[in-house]
Design a protein around this nucleic acid. Sequence first.
DNA 1: CTGAAAGCGCTTACAG
DNA 2: CTGAAAGCGCTTACAG
Lengths: 355, 355
Amino acid sequence: MKKPPRPPGAAVTAAEVGRRAGVSQSAVSRAFSPGKSISSKTRQKVLAAADELGYRPNLIARSLMTRRSNIVGLAVAPLENPFYAALVKELAQGLRPSGRHLLLFPAASQTEPDPQIEEVLSYHVDALILASTTLSSTLANRCRSLGVPVLLINRASPLEGVSTITGENHRGGETIARFLLAGGHRRIAYIAGLEHTSTSRDREAGLVEGLRQGGVELFARAVGDYSVERAVAAARALLDAPERPDAIFVANDYMALPVIQLIRGEYGLRVPEDISLVGFDGIPEAGYSGSGLTTYSQPVAGFVAGALSVLDSLIENTGALGSGVQVEGQLIVRSSARLPQTGLIECDGTQTWIG
Amino acid sequence: MKKPPRPPGAAVTAAEVGRRAGVSQSAVSRAFSPGKSISSKTRQKVLAAADELGYRPNLIARSLMTRRSNIVGLAVAPLENPFYAALVKELAQGLRPSGRHLLLFPAASQTEPDPQIEEVLSYHVDALILASTTLSSTLANRCRSLGVPVLLINRASPLEGVSTITGENHRGGETIARFLLAGGHRRIAYIAGLEHTSTSRDREAGLVEGLRQGGVELFARAVGDYSVERAVAAARALLDAPERPDAIFVANDYMALPVIQLIRGEYGLRVPEDISLVGFDGIPEAGYSGSGLTTYSQPVAGFVAGALSVLDSLIENTGALGSGVQVEGQLIVRSSARLPQTGLIECDGTQTWIG
DNA sequence: CTGAAAGCGCTTACAG
DNA sequence: CTGAAAGCGCTTACAG
């Protein structure tokens, strides 16, 4: 005759396991915390009892004492962009060894982190990652006073004490400029992302700088706001102008892909014979078609590796706050832009350009 | 002369707020729990003090008492598929009003939910959502005994007590069969997703059934495993055969898009003149190009709406466990498949077919 | 309406 | 190595 068990849906508790194993509740706790002093005999008993009862330590209760939730908050707005989808996936997977998990919250816009982040902060996350989102100084202060480290991915920040991981936005833009120039283009246009973002601004600045070095000015620009609809509209504006660009650098692949479709389909232009297109990010989709998109890559693996290491040192309080990691990319040459005569090299099956 | 404040990085506590406001800690708690009996004067004092101190209730501590974490676990493997990326985004956004958040964990494969789910269960999530993932009966039992409701999205389950939200897999496949038949096709092939998944199996069963009604047998099949690489290989196998299909139904858009590129690019075939392609899901990308992909839709909004309502009743213990919601889709007719003579109608700017 | 007290399920000094 | 006890920051009966 067993006694009536716990109310249904209530979890087994460490005390119950202790009772079953004939040890104290503390012993149960020790059995489940690596590195605690406990005899292996006691541990065996506890583990056996736990197994029978289906016990697992309640992580919420644990985190109340340890002041470590093993939860990392993640704000990421443009999940429809495969670059970010991949980032989230890899990040979640990369976090596994550390036992940490991502608590997701949708940033309403890429501009301002909204009040919901406050909510997430009340969960006492061990760190906060903002991918493609701006950080207000208010929130930054809030995080600092709560002792929550903040990591910006793919965004620069003027705020001190905030760590960042970025790609080679400026260098990428510059490389693209030189590449297009070497390919014989002279009327080079830019389709920007969101105007206030560091990614879009830095890529444009790099482009302009590279063009300037070649004695050429930016031919035209339009704004795509990192949205497909806006990007297509921007492309239309560029193509409907009296004089067309002979090349367009689109601020990211996610916008470049539909733009290239538009140009081929609706405008019936040949790419790259009539007009060249170059993107940024190096998402897998850019390489799918036979005539793939030439793009400057931001390797997701690099971003994730950087993020994990920064996160670790931030959470363990090693290393300085406010560090900035830059992930190297490269120009992936495919067939959406006319090729220069020289400087093309093949490396690991992908073609790149060493200008 | 202030006293030395809390250790840096430690959060303000309800007791501190109470002291500051000259009320008890309980009063502070009440001030932050809607619907508790508290005079508005006391609440004012508390709120003011909380504001000065930057206090927010610690949700982790709260959930220890309330036995409600407001966290929903979400396993989703194929985030690179825009359908799931959109699903996650909309889900997270849709959860906002309820104050719940998604705790993400990467399912290693789409086959078996891995042990890491156990970890997430130790967080005492209020519910567990598995999107495009199979549920082992072991895990299902584990969840039941823990009292954690489980919701499967885009997967059927033979297990009882498990709620599901699915699209019209069978009906969609059948509709596609009739549509292709009406378009004059006779050699209709299928590129499957993962063989063990209900989505791929049901879509195929529908297709075969629809063909049978038209007196036609499935011409050929190959397996794409819901992966781009495998799908492209599958398409190659189909196209390199002595006799080619005149139409291919690809189990989802994510695979269909690269397949269509392959057919046009590498094989130099005209779509739909030489061969017709139809997909499933209705991801935005399918409509980007001028010559878009004809596909049977699974509206993300519908999935999310269904998920939210099921989740609510599950968590609030209203409604029966193990309910199954089916979200309606429709055939979105674009130009990747030859059109039937009749039955095409325009509706809300998208063309569909009423057979 | 309000406060003192118990308790949620853990971890962690503190003695043995 | 082990157990009793205190405490993490809350919520919630229980008296007033």
